[in-house]
């Protein structure tokens, strides 16, 4: 059952990250940066989009590290396997 807990954390982590990504890449958050403005010689939106994107990828990598969830893919499924 200890694995169950770990899996729970993993699922929460990924769902949280998903919500964050969805928020960051959809209006109205993204529209705040969507202006033809240059920052540090680069377009603001270009910087923001790729920056957030890279951060999300980094976060996926952190969440998928083996050490954290050794063999809990199964349990993740178990947890999610309940009907809606």
């Amino acid at each position: 059952m200890a694995g169950m807990k770990r899996a729970g954390r993993k699922t929460e982590w990924s769902v949280t990250l998903f919500c964050f990504g969805l928020l960051a890449f959809t209006p109205p958050i993204m529209t705040m940066f969507d202006r033809p403005v240059m920052v540090l010689g680069l377009p603001l939106m270009y910087l923001v989009m790729f920056g957030v994107w890279a951060a999300v990828i980094l976060a996926i990598g952190v969440g998928a590290r083996r050490s954290r969830l050794s063999d809990s893919a199964d349990e993740a499924g178990l947890k999610d396997g309940e009907p809606w």
Partner: peptide, 10 residues
């Protein structure tokens, strides 16, 4: 697709 891979475990 990046967002879908965020919830890969699910």
């Amino acid at each position: 697709p990046t967002l879908v891979f965020v919830v890969w475990s699910v």
